[in-house]
Design a protein around this nucleic acid. Structure first.
Length: 377
RNA sequence: GGGGGUGCGCCACAGUGGGAGAGGUGGGCAGGACUGUAAAUCCUGUGCUUAGGCUGAGUAGGUUCGAAUCCUACCACCCCCA
């Protein structure tokens, strides 16, 4: 069973600091989960997830791992932990996000989703039941429901219909999940996902429905797909007022550093986002003093270190001019140093938020920190 | 030394071979985007300008109403022969 303990709740916001205990280890919340879609967080090694990043849990993706290397091999290897050598907690996304991002290469029906592989165009059929089976084989500590992530903007009629279908799919996910056992001897948590686009009444309805399924944790999906930040925050607010306080809440796909702080304030415990890792490969560096586009000419001769306060040693040693050079000549080390910097910053951000919640100074710290981290250097 | 070929925009390569094209592709350079990873990716710009235009096809002449295109000389590079 998943144990979740809340140690402290902020007086001026809904922020909380807690601990989740999985069979692969503890997770101190609020937490940011680096995304490792294909069995690796792009650009870095597992041991760097421990040090300097201090990751406590990472993501994998059902759709991608199913296509390559395929579930037979993962099963043969003894699950994704064994296959990758990463023995800390893992969460798998269900492929619901690919229903959204691979639009044009899939067909959504009540029964499930027919995909065309983005690799070779081959046809595949994902049903809620099959996605549960695949995630059992992958063996992540947390399995996500198969949902439809609606795009933005999304008209009310479609959002409502999609939400109801996601709820029906959820029933099927639960039935299959509850009637099957883990393959590898450790517990797997199942998380349902709230949908409802940017409509408060739909979000409320969905949150009530999801809360009613009484699972070990809950997630909010369908946000950070291009809607204004105010909508994202409002929807999160509506939903966290309904989802049970005693269970972890996961806001899927979020986000920018400021999104994370604002969402912690609204009662979110878990985040994931490709932004720090992807942007690192594209030359965007996040620090506690602001963000930099390292490719810009302004850094060409800047021989000061990347970030003197960084948790990542390479950022304290190497200069901005050197990192810019690495990006310019497309050396892989640039992406590596950048990924280490961004992910260790994101983990620093949530860990510090946690400390401040425990100290009772979260809201003041958040307001001050927002000014720093949104600065463009 | 002789013969042949080629020279344009930051670079390379294609293309054109009397009516200009500030044209193509790639790269470089300068910006921008990226939120449960079809992404080490994608997009925009890249002669000057007072925004009307102006200048421009190795250099200098010439022929022509008109030349990147034809002619002459020179320069540079490439190939072949000695």
């Amino acid at each position: 069973m998943l144990k979740f303990t809340i140690h402290e709740t902020d007086k001026k916001s809904k922020a909380r600091a807690g601990t989740m205990v999985t069979d692969h280890g503890e997770i101190q919340t609020p937490i940011f989960m680096p995304v490792g879609t294909q069995g690796t967080v792009k650009g870095i090694h597992n041991r760097e997830l421990d040090d300097p990043i201090k990751a406590q849990i990472i993501l994998g993706n059902t759709y991608h791992l199913y296509l390559r290397p395929g579930i037979d091999l993962i099963q043969k290897a003894g699950g994704l932990h064994k296959f990758t050598g990463y023995e800390k907690p893992m969460l798998t996304d269900s492929g619901g996000y690919q229903v959204y991002s691979l639009k044009g290469m899939r067909k959504i029906k009540e029964e499930g989703v027919k995909f065309r592989s983005h690799i070779d165009g081959s046809k595949h059929n994902f049903t809620p039941e099959y996605v549960m089976d695949i995630q059992r084989i992958i063996g992540a500590d947390i399995m996500m429901a198969f949902d439809e992530c609606t795009p933005y903007p999304c008209d009310y009629k479609y959002a409502k219909r999609s939400m109801h279908m996601t709820h029906r799919w959820l029933e099927r996910c639960i039935e299959r999940f509850d009637s099957t056992d883990p393959h590898y001897g450790y517990h797997q948590v199942f998380s349902p996902i709230v949908q409802g686009s940017t409509y408060p009444d739909l979000r409320k309805k969905s949150a009530e429905y999801i809360a009613g399924t009484d699972r070990e944790m809950n997630a909010i999906g369908g946000l950070s797909v291009g809607e204004p930040h105010e909508d994202m925050y409002n929807m999160t607010d509506v939903v966290t007022d309904i989802l049970p306080k005693e269970k972890p809440r996961y806001l899927m796909g979020v986000g920018l550093p400021e999104n994370i702080l604002e969402s912690i304030a609204r009662g979110i415990d878990m985040f994931d986002c490709v932004l720090p890792s992807r942007n690192a490969r594209h030359g965007i560096i996040y620090t506690s003093k602001g963000m930099m586009n390292m490719k810009n000419a302004k850094w060409k001769e800047d021989l000061s270190v990347i970030d003197a306060d960084s948790p990542s040693p390479s950022s304290r040693v190497h200069t901005k001019a050197y990192l810019r050079h690495l990006y310019h000549v497309k050396e892989l080390l640039g992406a590596q140093i950048g990924t280490l910097q961004n992910l260790s910053f994101f983990l620093w951000l949530v860990n510090t938020a946690r400390e401040k919640i425990l100290e009772g100074t979260f809201t003041e710290w958040k307001e001050k920190t927002l000014i720093d981290i949104t600065r463009r250097l």
